[in-house]
Amino acid sequence: MKQVLHLRVNGQAHELYVEPHKTLLEVLREELDLTGTKHGCDLGECGACTVLVDGTPILACLALPIELQEREITTVEGLAHGAELHPLQRAFAELNAAQCGYCTSGMMLSAKALLDRETNPTREKIRDALAGNLCRCTGYEKILEAVEVAGREVAGRK
């Protein structure tokens, strides 16, 4: 049975009417047309659907929106500040850290949570923070570089 749902996504409040068994992934993509959040398995096994809830990366394919009603949800569409890209977005584009781009949203959101905590993480820390996001294209090398470069820029802004 459909229920009213109040969700805050990327700073915007939405009132929706959906069934409780719809996952956050389905609601974002199919109700809110926020298709930047991807999916590779729907079972928690790839990280492509990573979004932030109150700044913490979680998997949209295993989250029930009904439980997230008072929380702040951030998707890739909410990374930029208006027309100004987040340093991660710029670095991912400029360093070719996004090849096919399918893991990119999830990667950047995991990375954002890390950079929000510390702007100059070691490679080890970056690996740990992104270990829940699979990429089949890049071999991860350029992604690591992009996170480092973005971290420096975030630090500069602070």
């Binding site: 959040t37 569409e77 930029a80 710029r90 991912f92 996004a98 781009g101 990119t104 949203s105």
Partner: peptide, 14 residues
């Protein structure tokens, strides 16, 4: 940068 990277990093690539 690749010319289509920009759409990918903002989640707009379809």
């Amino acid at each position: 940068a690749k010319i289509d990277s920009w759409d990918k990093v903002i989640g707009a690539a379809k």
